[in-house]
Design a protein around this nucleic acid. Structure first.
Lengths: 188, 188
DNA sequence: CAAGTGATGACACTTACTGACATCAATCTA
DNA sequence: TAGATTGATGTCAGTAAGTGTCATCACTTG
């Protein structure tokens, strides 16, 4: 038996989410989170740079996935096709646990600061995908544009999926959203 | 002669920008801003909800412009055409004072919190444009998608314009960016 | 001329976040 | 195996953002 209870980070994340749901993000103090996790405030800030970051810990995993898929797309794939494969993977990845996504999103939607953090995470994803496209030889502004637009498609599909009632498939919504994008921009 | 020096808000905004440039956003305290403006900290927070908001005071004006132009686009205009007219107006509006945009953008780019605020302002613009499209009878997700993609185009053109060296025309870059978007998404 | 009124100041308070140092059980090393 | 080392945590003091509340005071209005 070790000196400390194991999985301090996990306990902090769990306690945070519980409290954010119970009484809202703003009404929760870090001291309360730490107490519920059986740790101190100082330790909380050793694991998470701030109070918001707890909810976005998984973003780096998603980013790695997107970048990998874009990088490994067939050489023949156009930029938008490479992005499409990444969205497909993201849909499969996130589509697993819809209930958790819904709870988490309800917390985020209830607080402006959290929405800000969500947006910068998405912007970071877009920047990473743009980089991956440039690695494939795609020039700017095409790379930035394709990535940015890919994230727009992602956002809208994810939003429908999370807020929708039925048991829709995220990857499917991603494809539909992309198709819709093509229809919208084709108006010439 | 009035009891207080006039234009308290303007003095606070001016002092803020100066200090953000001189020593950076984080290294500037609200107390310092207030002192330079000849007011108190408490008064600063009566004019601006927080330290970041000073830099985004003009966003509502831009939003009104975008919404108006989308609303007044010809009935025959497709969603993306309506968005295009809005981008055109935004380009003309912001294109006026490039020097100011550049200074302001340098401050924002140097700080993550400010980038977060910028992103949520852009997201708010997108939401407002989507609303304006829905008023025209455009259904979702087409409205959201067109607005979101419009903002992506805006971001990329604005970025090029602000960080570029030459005296390029913002409205022109907007058109180019939109054309590029159509090319990117047309890959079928 | 007295009673508002609106912008500002004064002040106390909460809380996020940081830096510096202490603690202490496990582990390594001579 | 004694003693040094290490790594996760605690303790404590401090800064600064942001808020609530009441006081002030010049100007306005009846």
């Amino acid at each position: 038996m070790s000196r400390w209870e194991p999985n301090a980070r996990g306990r902090l994340a769990q306690a945070s989410l519980e409290l954010y749901i119970e009484r809202g993000f703003e009404q929760t103090t870090v001291a309360e989170i730490a107490q519920r996790a059986g740790l101190t405030e100082r330790t909380f800030f050793r694991y998470f740079v701030d109070k918001r970051e707890v909810l976005f810990w998984g973003a780096s995993t998603l980013q790695e996935l997107l970048v990998t898929v874009v990088a490994e797309a067939p050489t023949t794939a156009t930029p938008i096709e490479a992005i499409a494969t990444a969205l497909e993977s993201a849909g499969a990845f996130l589509g697993e646990n819809r209930a958790h996504s819904q709870v988490r999103q309800r917390v985020i939607d209830a607080n402006t600061e959290l929405k800000e953090r969500e947006l910068i995470k998405l912007a970071t994803l877009a920047a990473a995908m743009a980089d991956a496209l440039r690695q494939r030889g795609v020039k700017d502004p095409t790379a930035s544009l394709a990535a940015e637009v890919g994230i727009a498609v992602f956002r809208i599909a994810f939003d429908q999926w999370v807020h929708g009632t039925g048991d829709s498939d995220l990857a499917h919504l991603m494809r539909e959203s992309l198709t819709e994008l093509k229809a919208v921009t084709a108006g010439d």
